[in-house]
């Protein structure tokens, strides 16, 4: 058996920029984002796939970074909450979460916003049921979900207005 390499070196596309990174091969994408790239916006919840706090977009799709091997992410496009804002301005989703009370303690928020961003990219006018279905993999212990659904609905309206 070949010796296990001490470290893996690869380059991921993180929030639109090439991010060369070197890490121990057993690390998850969540661990590499937080510990090696200093991007602590993505939250570390259950580490077992049971909460959705660690949701990021990989090639545009919401996935759980706690269950993704970082060494399988070379060359892939990773989007985290740090990449969402538009320069000094909040993204409409971020603004709507603040305005609607969609974020209380805030721990689930980055994961929910990434999930919602992918939903609105493929469905600009989702119904409430479609929003609930898309975010059913993101647990929130504070809001009771109603404000989250309203925030996503209101952001969808803002984003549609921008397009016209």
């Amino acid at each position: 058996m070949a010796a296990i390499p001490e470290r893996v070196h690869l380059t991921m596309q993180v929030n639109g920029e090439a991010a060369p990174v070197s890490f121990a091969p057993y690390k998850t994408l969540l661990e590499v984002l937080r510990e090696d790239l200093g991007l602590t916006g993505t939250k570390h919840g259950c580490e077992l796939g049971e909460c959705g706090a660690c949701t990021v977009l990989v090639d545009g799709q919401p996935v759980l970074s706690c269950l993704a091997l970082a060494l399988e992410c070379g060359g892939r496009a990773i989007e985290t909450i740090e990449g969402v804002q538009r320069g000094p301005e909040l993204h409409p989703l971020q603004a709507a979460f603040a305005d609607c009370g969609g974020s209380q303690c805030g721990y689930c928020t980055p994961g929910v916003i990434m999930t919602a961003k992918a939903l609105l990219a493929r469905n600009p006018a989702p119904t409430r049921d479609e929003i609930r279905e898309a975010t059913a993999g993101n647990l929130c212990r504070c809001t009771g979900y109603q404000q989250i659904t309203e925030a996503i609905e209101s952001a969808a309206t803002l984003l549609r207005a921008e397009r016209t």
């Binding site: 959705g52 799709q61 996935v63 759980l64 269950l67 993999g137």
Partner: peptide, 9 residues
């Protein structure tokens, strides 16, 4: 099965 994120993976 599970959640949307897990069904994507």
């Amino acid at each position: 099965v599970a959640t949307a994120q897990i069904r994507n993976m």
